[in-house]
Simulated assay, not measured.
Amino acid sequence: MPDVITTTDDADLAHLVDLIDMLPDPEDTAFWGDGDFSIASKIGHRLRAVLGGRAYPKDVDYLAVYVLKYLGRGNGHIPEERIAKHLTGAHGIPAAGYAWVEDATSTAWTLVTRYSLPNWRGPRTPPGRAWLPQG
């Protein structure tokens, strides 16, 4: 089984946690939605594993994918305008929301590629093999 990953081990993961912490608390249903399928519950499940020091690569990957899917640029769930409006301390400054989304998206993508790329690549090793002349 892969090793546990903590925010001490991975600075990008720590940064993503800090970014998420800038958003409203998970009980804020006006921001996150409500019910068992709220975005806070999806993100929270993996985030609690990270915060509890018991996250495995798949937990980090899922957390990052959820950030891309539900908080990333152009998503249909929590748009940049809502993020800007609710950013703690930013007082609805649109540029803060856009910067947050850009930073969170970039950080999440870094984590996804770090922990998922081998699965996406499949049996193609070494990396780039399909581009090398065969024979």
Rank of each mutant, 00 (worst) to 15 (best):
P133W: 02
A64C: 03
A108G: 10
E81C: 05
A30Y: 14
V50F: 10
A14H: 04
T8N: 15
T110C: 00
A49S: 11
D18I: 00
T110L: 06
A95Q: 04
Y70R: 10
R48K: 09
W120D: 04
V112T: 07
G97R: 06
D9H: 12
Y98K: 13
R73S: 12
D9M: 13
G122H: 12
D9I: 04
N75Y: 03
L23G: 08
T8V: 11
G52V: 01
T107S: 10
D103F: 01
T125L: 05
G97D: 10
V60H: 02
T110E: 11
M1N: 08
P127H: 09
Y66A: 03
L132P: 00
M22A: 14
R82T: 12
K58V: 13
A130G: 04
R73E: 12
H86I: 01
T29D: 14
M22G: 13
E81Q: 14
L13P: 10
Q134D: 12
S38M: 09
G74A: 03
T125E: 13
D61M: 08
A130Q: 11
L68Q: 12
A96K: 09
H91F: 15
H45N: 01
T110V: 08
G52W: 00
I43F: 09
L47R: 08
L71W: 06
G128W: 11
F37R: 06
P118W: 11
W32L: 05
M22V: 06
A64R: 04
A84T: 07
D25Q: 15
F31I: 10
H45F: 08
D61A: 15
G89R: 12
P118Y: 09
E102I: 02
L19W: 05
D36S: 14
H15I: 05
S116C: 01
V67N: 06
A14G: 13
A64L: 04
A90S: 12
E80R: 10
A49Y: 00
V17A: 01
G33H: 01
P118N: 13
P94Y: 13
L71P: 02
S38P: 02
A90Y: 13
I93C: 03
P24M: 02
W32T: 03
M1Y: 07
P26V: 04
G74C: 01
V67H: 09
L19K: 10
T105G: 15
A14S: 15
K85V: 06
N75S: 04
T113Q: 13
L68G: 02
R129K: 11
P2L: 08
A64K: 03
T29W: 07
T6I: 07
P79S: 05
D36Q: 12
G76I: 00
P94H: 10
M1I: 04
H15K: 15
P79N: 09
D3P: 00
D36T: 12
R124E: 14
S38I: 06
W109V: 03
L111F: 11
I43L: 15
W100D: 11
M22D: 15
M1T: 07
S106Q: 04
T88H: 14
A64F: 02
L19S: 06
A49L: 08
